[in-house]
Write a protein that binds this DNA or RNA. Structure first.
Length: 118
DNA sequence: GATCTGACCACCG
DNA sequence: CCGGTGGCCAGAT
């Protein structure tokens, strides 16, 4: 069924990205590059994923998408969103490095896609 | 159709 | 650890 999105010029592939983000379970996070890799049907880069997140509608857990190495590149754009993301993730049980609330413990909370069990 | 920009990422110093 | 640079691909002008 078609989606009415005349308010913004959101390309079709946005929906695909959102679907991948929704697939991230609670308490886990994925990197932008990871999402881009998950959507192998199209050739997307991490930047494209970020651009899509900006238009993320309600129901999409955008907070579970983080930068590589557990960093929060969103901080450059909006310090407020950074704090919001940290708070939301902490609520879901995602752990941060001790003493550094800006970094996520990827080794523990990164979502392993079905690509390869490693 | 050329150019700039971007919720990125890896590399180097 | 911090900052700059190039590469990536799609949208906006």
């Amino acid at each position: 069924m078609e989606k009415e999105r005349s308010e913004f010029s959101s390309p079709d592939w946005y929906e695909v990205v959102y679907a991948a983000v929704r697939a991230i379970p609670c308490g886990k996070v994925a990197t932008y590059g990871q999402i881009a890799g998950t959507v192998s049907s199209i050739s997307l880069t991490a930047r494209q994923v970020g651009a899509a997140m900006r238009f993320a509608p309600q129901g999409v857990p955008w907070q579970r998408v983080v930068g590589a190495g557990g960093r929060l590149p969103i901080a450059r754009r909006s310090p407020e969103l950074k704090l919001l993301q940290i708070r939301l993730l902490a609520q879901e049980g995602v752990e941060f490095y001790s003493g550094d609330h800006d970094r996520i413990d990827m080794a523990r909370s990164q979502y392993s896609a079905d690509i390869d069990s490693k």
